[in-house]
């Protein structure tokens, strides 16, 4: 009877662990491997767009980024619900064999700029709000090429949904600015 009760409790926990958008999920051990997704699956690099209105330029009014649904699509099988609109899914998995745990670390390089001709906007003028979980806290790019976001042990999958935002505290020359951030997942 004791064994039966314990098994029932484990099943209930597993059911609760299936997340809508963000949480850490324990998955099966296996040959060591890491995997990372930022935005859409496949070969496309997702884009987050910001449009600043003349009336609020430089006022500190947050400008929320927009993106397409693919950037926040579900990540089967453990994250079967898409992120809210205009959110970007960041999903990572770190796997190792049983009794050989490892720790994976996710960082982001936010040291660059968005550029429009000779004009630049540092990435430190951008941040994000994490929804549906706390695995990657809401924050801003610090300008570090190795800004730490998350460390987690094997064997797990982690996923969050991020809505990016432009802080809009400084005035810049008009133009269309483009830039790129790179997320890195590493495990020894």
């Amino acid at each position: 009877m004791m064994t039966a009760r314990a098994a029932f409790a484990a099943v209930a926990f597993a059911a609760l662990a299936l997340p809508a958008s963000a949480i850490t999920v324990v998955v099966a051990d296996g040959a060591p491997e890491i995997a990372l997704r930022v935005g859409a699956t496949g070969g496309t690099i997702s884009q987050v767009s910001f449009a600043v209105a003349a009336a609020t330029a430089g006022t500190g009014t947050l400008i929320l980024g927009t993106t397409n649904a693919a950037a926040g699509s579900a990540q089967a099988p453990n994250f079967g619900t898409a992120c809210a609109g205009n959110n970007v899914r960041i999903w990572a998995r770190a796997r190792s064999t049983a009794f050989s745990p490892r720790t994976a670390t996710l960082t982001v390089n936010g040291s660059g700029n968005l550029t429009s001709g000779a004009n630049t906007i540092p990435l430190t003028n951008f941040g994000w709000v994490t929804s549906g979980g706390t695995e990657i806290a809401s924050g801003n790019f610090t300008g570090s090429p190795t800004q730490a976001l998350l460390s987690f042990g094997t064997t797990r999958e982690v996923s969050v949904c991020k809505r990016f935002q432009f802080l809009n505290t400084t005035i810049y020359p008009s133009g269309t600015y483009t830039g790129q951030v790179t997320y890195s997942l590493q495990m020894p």
Binding site: V38, G39, S49, F50, A51, A57, F164, Y177, Q180, V181
Partner: peptide, 9 residues
């Protein structure tokens, strides 16, 4: 993994 930003000012 990379993510592109585009801002219209």
């Amino acid at each position: 993994a990379r993510l592109n930003f585009r801002l219209t000012y």
